[in-house]
Amino acid sequence: MILKDIFFKKFVITAEIGPPKSWQVESLIQQYKKYLTEKIDAINVTDNQASVMKFGSLGMSILLKQNGFEPIYQITCRDRNRIALQSDILNAAFFGIQNLLLLTGDHPIVGDHKNAKPVFDLDSVSLIYTVKNLMQGYDLAGNKLSGEPPKFCIGAAVAPETEYLDSQIFKMEKKINAGAEFFQTQLVFNPEKFIKFINIVRKNFGKIPIMAGITILKSVNMAKFMNENIPGINIPESIIKQLELDKEKTKSGQKGLEIAANIIKDIKPYCEGIHIMPLGWINKIPQLLSLAEL
């Protein structure tokens, strides 16, 4: 299933998983089967997230596809040059992976191999452009691909709640011009800010599918940590207060689920889907969906 076929027909729900630092991943598939039910339209596979070396996103995407899931294959520009990126994308096409999320990627310095060479041969915009070219039957150097061109749905990322919205919108426009077909956002915590962002997007770019990023907050500390360290995230004081109010309820995840469900309810009329980043709490996803009445 290619995502662009279902946008605007239904409210799209995707979830994100991070492969482990291991090669034995079969047991995870069982877990996914249990919690990522048919309500989930597709599963996002992160590409060595936060520059920490892990099981690769291509392999995991293939494995998911073989097990009946619909993967969204994430690709970053940190580790591969344009040759490797394009050839990986061709691999993905063969295995039936049709949805891509193209990112620049974190710098190696934030990860666990600090001395690694940052490649960044291409960046997210030029990678989108490259995939677009592949879809038209040409590689980046302009050579023709033999046979049918591959078909993909190109996703890109945007941070709606950042303090520098202008430059985000600017880059978003470049991404759209380059060929991005849907956007997945950074975590949303302020529905009114998000709606403001959506309004700008509608005004400038019309009907482009936006999928809001959602997570389940686990604790006050986690919220504070994210506020301080993770770019583009801005958890309002009111949410932190809610978390502080009932420690037990927060610990069990009940509070986090309620908050997330409320956000989903608030923004649902404005976007085309949500993207759940469970950050380990994959087992809470069914609960979240029923709370949010999805």
């Binding site: 974190d106 960046d123 997210s124 915009v125 941070a159 880059k171």
Partner: peptide, 17 residues
């Protein structure tokens, strides 16, 4: 990251990631 086409979204408070 030697980005040519725009910021990466990793900036926090206007500072580099």
């Amino acid at each position: 990251k030697e980005l040519l086409n725009g910021p990466c979204g990793g900036a926090k408070n206007g500072k580099c990631e």
